[in-house]
């Protein structure tokens, strides 16, 4: 199977309907699919549920624009010198975002339940945490008699996993550099996988070292080449965090700023153009 998966960023975002459950790749300011998140806002999407262990700019922007209705996550912050994600905080405090608060590992357990094809997934630790109470999680005795009671987490089932990769093939294989964060688990748990990537490469580039590929093509439903698609975050090895852009994002609460922020993002320059195979490695 070598079906072409390449579409434009707009077409990729259009595959995601209102109310979809989206697992977003990366962590905090690093390698998040931020261009796709902005495109969902431009397209007026509503009622999204975000699943991510450590969202930051992505969930904050979606809350700022009223696009996210629910979030399942472990820690939300802009990290580094910035601390708390202000629009996320406001959305929870004002009751505009339903929060399913996890620990990173319990969210992983929920995803693993789906990946492993079982109705729940045991997880170590958690004893004494109020998270078990607010989430109504169950604690089971060991049926094999160790005496160790173990918390079990229900499935977390994303409709889509959206990840930003370093490289993608036309058939939808994707590779990341550095840590995959939770992207491997997300892409195995989701109903569909959507990829944005810094650059397009030929199959032979991956087939030389197939063990370095994170996402195999048959899992991928669509892919778009989006240079600087993780801006204002980092995408190793291509670029680091754009701290001045984030400072401005935090400093300017006015609504007109968001419009300008979306209009001046790197992907806005290629709006309306279809991803081409130019620049193929």
């Amino acid at each position: 199977m070598n079906r072409e998966k390449l579409v434009s960023l707009q077409e990729l975002a259009a595959m995601i309907p209102d109310g979809a459950r989206l697992a977003l790749g990366g962590s905090f300011l690093h390698r998040g699919p931020f261009a796709l998140v902005r495109e969902l806002i431009r397209q007026g999407r509503r009622g999204l549920e975000i699943i991510k262990q450590s969202p930051g700019y992505d969930l904050d922007l979606l809350c700022r624009c009223g696009v996210a209705a629910k979030a399942s996550c472990g820690i939300v912050a802009l990290e580094g010198p910035f601390g708390i994600a202000p629009w996320y905080r406001k959305a929870v405090e004002e009751g505009n975002l339903t929060l399913e608060e996890h620990s990173c590992a319990t969210l992983a357990a929920g995803l693993r339940a789906v990946v492993f094809g079982v109705p729940f997934q045991p997880v170590a630790g958690l004893h004494g945490s109020d998270l078990a109470r607010v989430n109504h999680w169950a604690c089971l005795p060991d049926p094999y008699g160790s005496g160790r009671d173990t918390w079990v987490i229900p499935p977390v089932r994303p409709d889509f996993a959206v990840i930003h990769a370093a490289e993608v093939t036309a058939a939808g294989d994707a590779r990341v550099w550095g840590t995959p964060n939770w992207d491997r688990l997300m892409t195995r748990a989701a109903e569909s996988v959507l990829i944005t990537a810094e650059r397009l490469v030929q199959d032979s580039f991956f087939s030389e070292r197939p063990e370095l590929t994170l996402v195999p093509r048959f899992l991928t439903r669509g892919a778009a080449v989006v240079p600087h698609g993780a801006w204002p975050g980092s995408c190793t090895p291509f670029y680091g965090v754009d701290y001045p852009a984030l400072e401005e994002y935090l400093r300017r609460p006015e609504e007109t700023f968001v419009r300008a922020h979306l209009a001046h993002a790197p992907e806005a320059a290629t709006q309306g153009t279809v991803a081409t195979r130019e620049g193929q490695t």
Binding site: I84, Y88, E93, S103, C104, A124, G125, L131
Partner: peptide
Amino acid sequence: SCIGDWHAPKVRLPGGGGAPVMLP
């Protein structure tokens, strides 16, 4: 997690990340 009641927080904090599983 929060200052005040979790269900109607006075202040929503970032969350525990790995702590609920790593601390124990």
